[in-house]
Amino acid sequence: MTAVGKLVAVQARRTLREPAAAFFMVAFAPLFALLMGLVFGNEPQAEFGDRGYIDANLASFPAIVLAIVSFVLVPIDIVSQRESGALRRFRATPLRPVGYIAADVLVRFAISLLSIAAMFALGMLVFGARPAGDLASVLLAAVLGVLAFLAVGYALAAVMPSQGTAQAFGNVLVYPLIILSGAAVPTAVLPEGVRQVAQFSPLTQLVELLRGLWAGQPWAENWVPLVVLLGVLGAATAVAARFFRWE
């Protein structure tokens, strides 16, 4: 096996052995959907345009997972590995930095996507949720979301000076962003001014894109969130590449 292949295998096992991380990365999304479905059911309700709670909201749940992964889990893991000297040990081998990062990204990408796919499967099989639009488009948008927000995670890891700062910053930021995004509570309950501010959050844009495609809107109607997410992907990748440090 190649070095990167081995590294992927080790990183995957390592991630799954970390109970908190494994839970968030694989099981959190489907469990969250299950919990919400059990609490709210999926009977048609007037406030969701005669659709059920799960039908109306399932598509936005990935944003919650991605927020936690990118603002909390990735920066803390990478910064703590930098602080412990683990990254430096890799630097003392012929392994190329890009090889290390590629393996890390690949593992997190696969786990996040698996989790999101499991969540959609659960919503559809257990609660009978059905996209009005094309499921493949929704999943494609989810892939874009995973890439953009993983990049944000690496960018944060690159600029955070210490694990403590990364932890504080992530925890302070993640909950407001989730609430503003409308993934957890409907944006309708937010005051008008707050709702307008919320539009500037990429997480809100991801939720809009996922919901829009799930509801059957064409991509063309969702060009704003699409451009925002592509922009975030580009900018965060640039920041990560420019500022990533091994020690």
């Binding site: 096996m1 070095a3 683990a86 003392a92 081998t93």
Partner: peptide, 26 residues
Amino acid sequence: GIQLQSAALPQRIRVGEALDLFAAFY
């Protein structure tokens, strides 16, 4: 080969895995 004065590996790696992984780098 390099042994650093203070070194670490990522958490939750087994000894055999670490050796096998580093062997693959060369």
